[in-house]
Amino acid sequence: MKTKINKDYTLEILDMLLNSPSPTGYTHHIMSKVEAEFKKLGFEIAYTNKGCGIVTIPGVDSDRVIGISAHVDTLGAMVRSIKSNGYLRITSLGGFMMGAIENEYCRIHTRDGRVYEGTILTIHPSTHVYEDARELKRDEVNMEIRIDELVNSKEETEALGIGVGDYVSFDPRVRILDNGYIKSRHLDDKASVAAIFGLLELVVSQNLRPKHTVKLFISTYEEVGHGSSYIPEEITDLIAVDMGALGDDLSGNEHKVSICAKDSSGPYDYHMTSKMIEHAKELNIGYAVDIYPKYGSDVSAALRGGHDIRGCLMGPGVHASHSMERTHINAVVNTAALLAAYIVDPA
């Protein structure tokens, strides 16, 4: 089956998603945008109690139901405490190196809807002043946020409405280059969500009918391990669409679709994974099969949640995951094309 994914549309959606702050647990704003886009394509969205979105694509039959999951929640932080000088201590949301956010611009989102700018720094941020500036261990206790407001005390910061438990989002620094490279924070997993929208636009524009009913599942707590611990009970097969890890001992790259055979939660379903590989070969899509020993997915969470499902994991290759990430539009649109082939001819 040959498919033509709308690249311009997919990039437009990806740009919107990347520029919408959504640290894990603070996803209601981005889900409103996601809902609006689903409605533009003619689909209604239902929500779980914790804010995950579900969209149904009717199939030729409903004897099996294929779930396709991707997550909009990202890495981020929370205000842990307000220091006596008005600066903020943070606690991390998700698993990242503190060095990956050092010197990064950020936003503080207060509970009453105000947003303030800041910069994440070490407590000894200058080699002109501190002898241990280079050697200081980059961990939470040695990191702080300098707020871009006139504050010199805890009381002055509190007067801004900033408090413990406020969310902190990182500047994504989105760059979409003419040569197809896309570099930004949070390509994990917004590149995959954009691919799902590319798939859905194809379903609508080409009147594509899946063999079985498909349920798109947009999860909101994946970065902390329970995004899809609940999924609709009728789902029998779940495809987690998530970024492919790249690096030593891995064969993927930023132009390829990564297909994961096994991660920290164990092997993925043999038949589903084999069918993904088969379709990638048929479509002449660049792909790589890899093992991710330090990785978990929405399928992992669903299996831990007790669901009787088969599962597989695939998605665009992303370099420097949980840091300054980069992928290529080829990997994103080919992820959508591979999904399209699979829902027409599943395992």
Rank of each mutant, 00 (worst) to 15 (best):
L283M: 11
K262S: 07
A261D: 08
G252E: 01
T273C: 06
E278Y: 10
N253P: 02
D248E: 15
L283N: 03
Y268M: 13
Y268W: 14
L250P: 00
V241S: 06
Y287D: 01
P267N: 13
I285V: 11
G244D: 04
L246A: 07
K262Q: 13
G286W: 00
D249K: 11
K275V: 04
N284A: 09
N284W: 05
E254W: 00
S258Q: 09
C260A: 09
H255Y: 11
Y270F: 15
H271S: 15
H271G: 08
G286E: 15
S274E: 06
G244H: 03
V257L: 03
L246M: 12
Y287R: 03
P267T: 12
V257Q: 01
G286S: 14
S251C: 11
V257N: 02
D242W: 09
P267S: 15
E278R: 09
D249R: 09
M272E: 06
S274C: 12
K256A: 14
D248F: 05
C260G: 02
E282P: 02
V241F: 11
A245I: 04
L283V: 04
G252Q: 01
Y268E: 05
M243H: 10
E278K: 09
S258I: 07
N284H: 12
S274R: 11
D269Y: 12
N284T: 03
D263S: 08
G286C: 08
G252L: 02
K281M: 08
V257R: 01
Y287V: 04
Y268S: 06
H271D: 14
Y287I: 02
G247F: 02
G266H: 09
D269N: 14
S251G: 09
S265D: 14
K256W: 01
D242R: 08
Y270M: 14
N253L: 00
M276C: 12
K262F: 07
V241L: 15
S258G: 07
S264E: 15
E278T: 10
S274L: 06
H255A: 10
D249T: 08
H271Y: 13
T273D: 08
E254F: 00
G286L: 13
S274F: 06
D249H: 10
G244T: 03
G244R: 01
Y268I: 04
H279E: 04
A261Y: 11
I285G: 00
S251H: 12
E278H: 12
D242I: 10
G247S: 12
I277E: 11
G247C: 06
S274D: 09
I259Y: 00
M276E: 04
K275W: 07
M272N: 04
A280V: 00
D269I: 14
I285S: 02
